[in-house]
């Protein structure tokens, strides 16, 4: 009984919010057990693998989704900067847990710290009129320095567990962390779905977007905050050091083979999912760190995409459509 009492005390409003997500996780697990039985894939016999695959699939959607808007504004490295500040957030969580014996998930403190850092980077860039790599480098190193200091202060048992945050780990994806990720996923995908027009316009042509009445500053803030959420969500599997790769590599690959923006979004998600699934499978059987394997697969896919892009470009050179004339009369006839 005391154990159950403890569990009830621990259960705050957070658990009420997460309840439907736990239900979904159970459903997902049943599904994968069935798939495992049907296909004979050994790694589907473990619940932690079910959670890891679900988290991986979510990362495969949200990282390239946000990454597309970052890469095409030459902001590829902002993900890296935010990942390092998220590491500071993890350290803050571990520190609080160690000193005050709280049961806070370090991922929650990571979300808070990363979002604050994201806004900080954005405010610095607004004040200086440019995203400059210097301010990003300063935020990045500050975050990592803060993280290492907090961890060393709190040494002993904690330093051992830090690897899972640095390099990611499939087997430590707890039900709570998976549920937190599902919440982040819903927020990110929902926000992008709602504001896709504005985000696209700001990404493609900031000046014209501003003239068309879009508050560029506001959407830039939304974008960096979403990036912070993605980074923290993806950190569980990818680790702090490699998380930025998922924002950048699939998007870069998709840009090679796509003509349209919507196509590039779709292709980048497909490429990312491919890398995630191949990576998780290979890392299980090869007993390697999943984050690294996923990134290697992603880079391999990128190289293939570059090659396909070159072939496509050569094939497309033959067909050049006819350029029509600018026609003032057209405007008149069309209106009748």
């Amino acid at each position: 009984m005391p154990v159950e009492l403890f569990a009830v005390l621990q259960a705050g409003p957070l658990d009420a919010v997460l309840a439907p997500f736990y239900w979904f996780l159970a459903l997902w697990s049943d599904l994968l057990f069935a798939v495992g039985d049907a296909t004979g894939l050994g790694f589907l016999d473990y619940r932690f693998m079910h959670r890891a695959i679900l988290v991986g699939l979510c990362i495969g959607v949200m990282a390239p989704l946000i990454g597309t808007f970052l890469v095409h504004r030459q902001l590829a490295l902002i993900g890296d900067a935010l990942a390092h500040t998220a590491f500071a957030g993890v350290a803050v969580g571990l520190f609080l847990n160690g000193v005050f014996s709280l049961g806070v998930s370090p991922y929650l403190t990571a979300v808070v710290v990363a979002v604050i850092a994201a806004l900080l980077i954005e405010l610095i860039s607004e004040a200086t009129d440019a995203y400059n790599d210097v301010s990003m480098a300063i935020v990045l190193s500050t975050g990592f320095a803060l993280g290492t200091v907090l961890i060393s202060l709190n040494a002993g048992g904690l330093a051992v567990g830090i690897n899972q945050y640095l390099f990611g780990n499939l087997s430590t994806v707890s039900a709570e962390n998976a549920a937190i990720l599902l919440v982040l996923f819903a927020v990110i995908v929902g926000t992008v779905a709602l504001t896709r027009n504005q985000l696209l316009y700001v990404t493609f042509d900031e000046t014209a977007a501003a003239v068309s009445g879009i508050s560029v500053t506001w959407y830039n803030r939304v974008m960096v905050m979403l990036t912070a959420l993605v980074v923290v969500g993806a950190m569980q599997i990818m680790g702090v050091i490699l998380v930025a790769a998922m924002l950048v590599v699939p998007v870069a690959g998709a840009a090679q083979v796509s003509q349209s923006f919507s196509e590039s979004l779709l292709v980048s998600v497909v490429l990312a999912e491919l890398a995630v699934l191949l990576g998780i499978g290979a890392s299980y059987y090869g007993e390697a760190t999943a984050g690294g394997v996923i990134v290697l697969f992603a880079v391999g896919i990128y190289v293939v995409a570059v090659a396909i892009g070159k072939v496509q470009a050569r094939a497309g050179e033959d067909a050049t459509p006819e350029l029509g004339s600018i026609d003032a009369a057209e405007t008149r006839s069309n209106s009748d």
């Binding site: 027009n197 504005q198 696209l200 990404t203 493609f204 014209a208 796509s258 923006f261």
Partner: peptide, 25 residues
């Protein structure tokens, strides 16, 4: 000079942006 030079986006998608102020979200 103002727009992105590398982004994969078609002519039609660019022209559609002209309608964005009319449709909002």
């Amino acid at each position: 000079a103002s727009a992105s030079k590398e982004m994969p986006i078609t002519v039609r998608e660019v022209v559609k942006m002209g309608r964005f102020p009319h449709v909002g979200f």
